[in-house]
Structures are given as C-alpha cells and as structure tokens.
Amino acid sequence: MQTPASHPGIHIDLAELIEMRHRVHEVPLFSTPARRSPLIGLHHSKLRGRGVDFDQVRVYQPGDDVRTIDWRVTARTQEPHTKLFHEERERPIFIIAEQSQRLFFGSGQCFKSVLAARAAALIGWAALGHNDRIGGLVFADNEHHEVKPRRSKQSLLQLLNLLARANQALAAEASPASRDTFGMALRRAREVLRPGSLVIVLCDERALSDNAEQQLTLLARHIDLLLLPLSDPLDHALPAAGLLRFTQADAQLELDSHNGDLRQAYRAQAQAREARWQRLAQKLGVPLLPLSTQAELVEQLQEQLSALRPRKVV
C-alpha cells in the first residue's frame, strides 16, 4: 500500500490533521469576545444550572426572571436589580467520527473518510482553543476507540492519531460490516457522557437507521447535538455514463445508467435520506450542517454558518 502522501484526498495522516489548527480562525464554530458564533446556542441550552458563575448586577428589566432579583441591592437602592450569570466556557465536547468502509469513497475533492477526519480535526482544535474539554469516539466497521474528554492538547492529539490510524487502515478490497456500528457508537456515547455535553456527529449520510435515529433522540434529551452527515455527489445522482460496474470483495453489480427510471429512483432515494436528516434535526431542534466531498471543507462551513446567522431587519 502506498503512503497517504502519494494519494492526496484518499488517505490522511496525523501531520495533516495537526495542520488543520491553522484554519480554525477562518470558521466561527465557537464564540470569542470579538466574534459571536451562530452556534452559540449549543453552549447555553442544557447546562441546567451546572457550571454557572455570577457575572454582575444590573437594573431589573421586563422579562427578567424574578428568581434572580438581588434583594439586598434592591433594598439598598430602592430600585429592582437582578443578578446576571454566565456559563462556564469549559464543557465536554465529544466528537463521534466515522471511519468505516462506506466512507472510503469519493468522486469530488477527497474521499468521505478524509472529509470526516478533517472536519473532526478542525472542530477539535476550535474546541481546545475555546478552553473546552475535548474527547471523542472513532468507529470503524469492526471496532471503535474512545478518548475521554480532557482540556489538554494531548487528549486531542490522541483522538487525531486514532482518526489517522483508522483512516489509513481503510482499503478498497475490504468488506463493510453488517452491524449498525453508528447506532452502537451513539449508544456508547449515552453511557459515558454526562448531561450538558456537546456531541459532534460526523457520519455517512446513509448511516441514519431506525436504531441510530432512536439513539440520537435519546441523546438529545440531555446533551446538545451538532449533526454533520457526509455525502458525495454520486450518492445523490448517477451520471448517464452507460453500463457501470461495481465490485466489492467477491460481489459484483452492473447498472445501466442510461435507464432514466433507474436514475430517477436513485435520486429519489437520496432525496429521502436528506429529508430524513432534516426532519430529525427539526424535531430535535439541533443544527444540521451537511458536508459534501464536492467542495472544500472550510468554505462549506463558512457558507453553512452564514446561513444560520440571524438576518438584520432593515
């Protein structure tokens, strides 16, 4: 097998994942004093009173929670005042990243497996720079590896090393597992994460089984979610290129892509997958940021986050 460096976009190595730290400033994934992220709600919705610090006291305004009134200041000034709190910036961020055989494919700028690894690295470096605890779970067809969330560079490097090793182990002749590895990874996350964590999900768009959807629904009760399903242009539409032959291990498949009904049915299946993700994200009230191998990662995230930013009323 040739080295990843000789196959850009097909495999990825640890050095490239480390280099992703230089691109964090291009994408406002987390808020800073100088920049507010469209995803800021992910850092404020489910802490349920844990990790909350006193900030300041100000004059009571209509709509303030009466339970936060500062009665001592109110009595001293003879004017209602309320306490303001801010949530601790440090929280567990857990990246669930797929590196299975079904991601070892791509007709765009890179394979889906590489896109997943790059996105995980970018988010990991952003979280570390935001002073959050970072950990995760990398799952392949027959195994998974976990890193406990910690606020340390070593923890992130351990996760990136697992990603690189799993990515380089992917090969064209391997057979995908028949188990619902995505659902199993989500169930494991439910077992190890405490309420108030933020889970970043990077998986194949086709991974959303009934069991996985149920696990995501259960996770969303106590944990914030960010969903990033991955796809390739050929997942959504077949080109009219005549007879197409596909092989995997000992199995072979032939498709006549000149058949209009076949292409339409293929496209309809892809649209149904997209719609299912959209319905799930809407039901759970979580952000959905689909990624494609067709475009560069940072540009996609910039465009998606820009669309999430509230429009100013003129």
Rank of each mutant, 00 (worst) to 15 (best):
N259I: 11
R267Q: 15
F105E: 07
N211P: 00
I123Q: 01
M184L: 15
H44R: 15
Q302D: 04
A268N: 08
R194T: 15
I134Y: 05
Q154V: 07
W71E: 09
G242E: 01
A75H: 11
Q214M: 09
I223G: 00
I18E: 12
L305N: 05
L170Q: 03
A121I: 08
L128D: 04
M1C: 01
H236P: 00
L244W: 03
E19I: 05
E303R: 15
V27G: 07
L280T: 05
H7E: 06
V24S: 04
H7N: 09
L253R: 10
K83C: 08
A126H: 13
P233T: 09
D250L: 11
F94R: 05
I96R: 00
S292T: 15
S306N: 13
P33E: 03
I123T: 11
G136N: 06
L198S: 13
R279T: 04
M1S: 11
P4H: 13
F54C: 11
A212M: 06
F105M: 09
A5D: 13
S45C: 00
A307R: 15
G108V: 06
Q294R: 15
D132N: 05
H130W: 07
E19A: 15
E87Y: 10
L291A: 06
R150D: 04
A127C: 07
A185K: 03
R118P: 01
K312N: 09
I10H: 10
L157N: 13
D65E: 14
N167Y: 00
Q78A: 12
K153V: 05
R151E: 04
F104V: 01
S292V: 09
A249I: 00
L301C: 05
L243Q: 11
E173W: 14
L163A: 04
A119H: 10
E296P: 01
Q304N: 11
A121T: 07
H44I: 01
I134T: 12
Q264A: 15
G9A: 10
G183N: 05
S292L: 03
R91C: 04
L162A: 03
D64Q: 06
P239L: 03
E254K: 02
A174W: 05
V73F: 02
D180C: 07
F246A: 08
V24F: 01
G51R: 04
A237P: 00
Q78V: 02
Q61R: 14
L216I: 07
K112A: 13
D204N: 14
N161V: 00
L193V: 02
A174C: 03
Q300A: 12
A268S: 13
S231N: 12
G51P: 11
T68P: 00
R276P: 00
C110K: 05
N259L: 09
F182S: 06
S107E: 13
L297C: 08
P80Y: 07
L218N: 10
L280I: 04
H236S: 08
N211G: 00
R188E: 08
R187W: 08
V138T: 09
T217M: 03
L289V: 11
S113P: 07
E173N: 14
A34L: 10
L253Y: 02
V114G: 08
